[in-house]
């Protein structure tokens, strides 16, 4: 079997669709089946060229199929120690386990944010999210996981300190593939039981830390709430592209509150119902009602017949069990 795997590995192409295929040797474990002993991990690497270019692109590499235990530290070490010593500034991953907290955002807000605001630090409480606040170290809840993992087959963008480092790293990657040099993957430490034990301990943070974080959060929240109210006030007063004024909550002087409008509607309907002529007053009404009931029965029967027919098709013939 191992020889087969090796043969297969020899057949591995060097690049695909512009991605360099970069094999990593993995640590070996005696408890794994023999067929997995020589397994290699494959990264797909290419200079970063996103659909919406940013200033960082020219000093970034895009890596796909990152190992589940990749993090900024061990990727930095990989380039520094085994790939010509290029210096990595930061790494952005597309996924994490556990997943990053989702912030609720408004549609318009999200569109704007994508383009010009990235990288620019805005004043915290001016960035408005649909609920809560954008948390900082003081106001966020204590973390309960030691470090993050990646979903299998995820990607990462490695940002180098400058353009030159990135070029150097990219060259080195290609060289390694050409020369079939072996590169070791050194995953993160402290996985397994140790990680879970730490997690279990972190799940129960000290009460002082909790109290402090809540206090910080609530004061930030009050500020954010003000900002949100401002936004709503704006939405109330400015018509959108179709000329409609959005109904939002808050603001008594606004056109109407959603709940009130609904309540009124139900009220009107109720009144309408009451004032109408009784529906069994005229003879034609009873006749029609009867006809309707009859049709209803007939329709029901038809539906049931169809159901039984379907049942028969599904199960075949009805036969008492033996």
């Amino acid at each position: 079997m191992p020889s087969e795997i090796r043969k297969e590995q020899n057949k591995i192409p060097e690049s695909v669709s512009g991605f360099a295929i970069f094999p990593l040797s993995l640590p070996s474990f005696p408890s794994l089946p023999k067929t997995c002993a020589d397994a290699k991990h494959y990264l797909y690497i290419k200079p970063h060229e996103p659909a919406h270019p940013t200033a960082l692109d020219e000093r970034s590499l895009f890596i796909s199929n990152v190992p589940f235990d990749a993090n900024e530290g061990n990727l930095r070490a990989l380039f520094a120690d085994q790939l010509g010593g290029s210096r990595v500034a930061s790494v952005v991953f597309d996924s994490s386990v556990p997943a990053a907290p989702t912030l609720k955002r408004w549609r318009t807000d999200a569109g704007k944010k994508d383009g010009e605001q990235r990288g620019k630090k805005r004043k915290r409480d001016e960035e408005i999210v649909a609920e809560g606040v954008v948390e900082d170290e003081t106001s966020s809840l204590p973390k309960i996981w030691p470090g993050e993992l990646r979903r299998s087959g995820g990607c990462a963008v490695v940002v180098f300190v400058d353009r030159g480092s990135m070029k150097g790293a990219w060259k080195e990657v290609q060289k390694v593939i050409k020369e079939r040099r072996e590169v070791q993957w050194k995953g993160s430490e402290g996985l397994g039981v140790e990680r879970y034990r730490k997690h279990h301990a972190m799940k129960y943070p000290p009460r002082e830390a909790l109290q402090a974080s809540i206090n910080a959060y609530l004061s930030q929240f009050n500020r954010a709430e003000l900002a949100r109210n401002r936004l709503r006030a704006k939405q109330r007063s400015v018509p959108d592209e179709d000329g409609f004024i959005t109904v939002t909550r808050g603001g008594r002087s606004g056109p109407a509150r959603l709940e009130q409008a609904e309540k009124k509607k139900a009220e009107l309907e109720e009144r309408k119902k009451k004032s109408g002529v009784k529906d069994d007053f005229y003879r034609f009404q009873t006749r029609e009602k009867r006809k309707e009931a009859e049709n209803e029965l007939r329709k029901k029967f038809e539906a049931d017949r169809k159901r039984v027919e379907e049942m028969r098709q599904r199960r075949g013939k009805i036969r008492p069990e033996v």
């Binding site: 795997i5 192409p13 060097e14 690049s15 695909v16 669709s17 512009g18 360099a20 993995l26 640590p27 474990f29 408890s31 794994l32 089946p33 067929t35 997995c36 002993a37 020589d38 397994a39 290699k40 991990h41 494959y42 190992p67 589940f68 235990d69 993992l149 299998s152 290609q174 593939i177 050409k178 995953g187 996985l191 397994g192």
Partner: peptide, 23 residues
């Protein structure tokens, strides 16, 4: 400057076993 090919892909069972052990 690498030889580029169109290729197929399938799941990397060996590496996944290795990852499971690491995890």
């Amino acid at each position: 400057n690498l030889t580029d090919q169109m290729a197929d892909m399938r799941v990397n069972k060996g590496a996944i076993c290795n990852e499971i052990k690491r995890l």
